[in-house]
Design a binder for these strands. Structure first.
Lengths: 102, 102
DNA sequence: CTTGTAATTAGGATTTTTCCTAATTAGGCT
DNA sequence: AGCCTAATTAGGAAAAATCCTAATTACAAG
């Protein structure tokens, strides 16, 4: 969970996931959209997003396609909605930490 | 927006906002809930949350009460829902503070 | 004013993040 | 093979985050 929020804490990475909302893109296309940073820097951000589970990759010939993983977004949404009182805490045995009188 | 996500990227700070969901608390009560970090460290986290707009403060005698600011949470939710295709992009006057209709 | 409690700020050591250039891996093509 | 494009890794400098102890501010009560 920390990694997801941390990943979204950087403007460049938010911009990337926004771009991916329209559909998968290759590293090159993503990197080309940033004229203010180098390709390796973009790769670094993509790695951060991947480590957070926010994107997945598929190789396509010489290129690599990055795809948004909605399920990771849903996790974060769940936490926030719960914070707003609009969702119940996950009754997962794993992460249930708070006694929530809903 | 970066500050909100960054703030939520730390487990201690997520735990604090979760605690505040039940209602406002004083610094002392919050700090007392963390036996693994010192009071100044907790203050640091509270400052981060405040800078992000996630909490507000009111002095109450010698104590200071921290209150969760739902509106900041809503902003973040808006971004994520939009990412999931379940909400329209905010009518983007640069950085819409509050004016997000439904 | 002095003392005690609540809370924050100051200063600094350590770790992590960020972002560059240079080098490298991976794949396609002739 | 050799070469070109696509993409990532390596290495390191600079900046930011983390978290401590010590000092300080804010407030209430005697």
């Amino acid at each position: 969970m920390s990694q997801v929020f941390k990943a979204l804490g950087h403007p460049a990475r938010r911009r990337i996931v926004e771009m991916l909302r329209a559909g998968p893109m290759t590293s090159g296309d993503i990197a080309a959209a940033f004229d203010d940073m180098t390709w390796p820097t973009v790769t670094g951000h993509l790695n951060a997003l991947k480590d957070a589970g926010l994107v997945s990759t598929e190789r396509e010939g010489a290129s690599v396609r990055y795809r948004l993983r909605i399920s990771a977004v849903e996790e974060a949404v769940g936490f926030l909605l719960e914070l707003m009182g609009k969702a119940e805490p996950a009754t997962d045995p794993k992460e249930a930490k708070n006694g929530n009188p809903a």
